[in-house]
C-alpha cells in the first residue's frame, strides 16, 4: 500500500491514468455502442396495400393523418411514391423519434417486408416515384469519372468532395454517404428528403444518377495515400500534423535534449 501511495506521486502517474481512462472509455463504448443498422434493400413482394394501411394507421397516422392526408405537423404523403417511403423508413428516419433541426437516421424500426407493405400503401394513394430496380442502382453500370463531374457540381457543396458529409445552417447537416446503400442514395436523389433538392429525370437522368452512385462506391475503396483521416480535407490534416507530427517530434526533442550527464 505504501509503495502504491509513493507511486501516486510519480510525475508519470497522470499520463498513465489518462491512458487507462482512454482505454476504459474505448472499451465501454465498444460494448455499449449500438450496432450499426443493416440497411439492406427489401425484396419486392406482391401488393400488400391493406397490410400496409394497417401498419400506417398504427404507426404513422398520429402525425400524417389517418389517410396520410397530412396534418399541421407533418406533410401529406399523397403522391410521394414508394421511393420516399423506402428511403425514410428504410434508413430509420421515419417514424420520427423527436423533433430537432433535422430528422436523424437511426435503427430501422420495421422489417423489410413491412417497409415494402407500407410503401405499397403509400404508392396506392397517388402516383409518385417508384422504388428503383436493382439494375438501376448497380454501381457497375455507372461511369465513375462522369460521376465525379456530376457529384462535384450537384452534391459536393453540401456532402463534401467525397461524400463525407458537411454542415448546413442552424444545426442541419448533409449526412455522410459512405455508409449509405446505393438504393437509398438513388431514392434520396429522386425524392429530395428534408433540405435536399429533388433531382428528377430532367435534372439528372437515371444513367447520371447511376454514375454518381458509381463515384460514391469508388470512394469506399481504400485511399491510395494511406489512412484517409476522415476525408475531411486540410483541417483534419492540420490536426494530425500537430498531434502526431509535432507531438512525436517534441517527444524526440525531449528525449534527445534530456541531460546526458
Amino acid at each position: 500500500m505504501k509503495a502504491l501511495a509513493a507511486r501516486r506521486q510519480d510525475r508519470r502517474a497522470p499520463l498513465v491514468l489518462l491512458l487507462l481512462a482512454l482505454l476504459l472509455t474505448g472499451a465501454v463504448y465498444a460494448v455499449v455502442a449500438p450496432p450499426s443498422a443493416d440497411a439492406s434493400a427489401p425484396a419486392a413482394t406482391g401488393d400488400d396495400v391493406e397490410t400496409g394501411r394497417q401498419i400506417f394507421q398504427a404507426n404513422c397516422s398520429t402525425c400524417h393523418g389517418p389517410n396520410a392526408e397530412g396534418t399541421e405537423w407533418a406533410p401529406s404523403l399523397v403522391g410521394v411514391g414508394a421511393a420516399a417511403v423506402d428511403f425514410q423508413v428504410g434508413t430509420g428516419r421515419m417514424p420520427m423519434q423527436n423533433s430537432g433541426p433535422q430528422v436523424l437516421a437511426k435503427d430501422v424500426q420495421f422489417t423489410d417486408e413491412q417497409i415494402t407493405q407500407l410503401a405499397a400503401y403509400v404508392a396506392s394513394l397517388g402516383a409518385g416515384p417508384a422504388i428503383p430496380t436493382e439494375e438501376q442502382v448497380d454501381p457497375a453500370g455507372g461511369d465513375p469519372a462522369n460521376g465525379l463531374s456530376l457529384f462535384r457540381t450537384n452534391c459536393a457543396m453540401c456532402h463534401n468532395a467525397v461524400g463525407a458529409g458537411g454542415a448546413l445552417s442552424e444545426g442541419k447537416f448533409a449526412p455522410a454517404l459512405l455508409e449509405t446503400s446505393p438504393e437509398h442514395i438513388y431514392e434520396a436523389m429522386l425524392t429530395g428528403p428534408q433540405s435536399m433538392p429533388v433531382f428528377n429525370e430532367a435534372t439528372l437522368t437515371s444513367q447520371e444518377k447511376q454514375d454518381i452512385i458509381a463515384y460514391i462506391e469508388a470512394q469506399k475503396e481504400p485511399s491510395p495515400g494511406g489512412l484517409e483521416l476522415g476525408s475531411l480535407g486540410p483541417v483534419s490534416e492540420g490536426v494530425w500534423a500537430w498531434v502526431v507530427g509535432i507531438g512525436l517530434l517534441i517527444a524526440f526533442s525531449v528525449w534527445i535534449g534530456a541531460k546526458s550527464s
Binding site: 465525379l148 463531374s149 462535384r152 457540381t153 457543396m157 453540401c158 463534401n160 458529409g165 483521416l229
Partner: peptide
C-alpha cells in the same frame, strides 16, 4: 501511412464547384 491532399478527390479545377469542407 497518412493520406494528405488527395487531389483526385477534388478533381481538376473548374471555377463553378466548391465542396463542403473547403479549407
Amino acid at each position: 501511412t497518412m493520406s494528405i491532399n488527395p487531389v483526385w478527390n477534388y478533381g481538376p479545377y473548374d471555377p463553378s464547384p466548391v465542396s463542403a469542407g473547403a479549407q
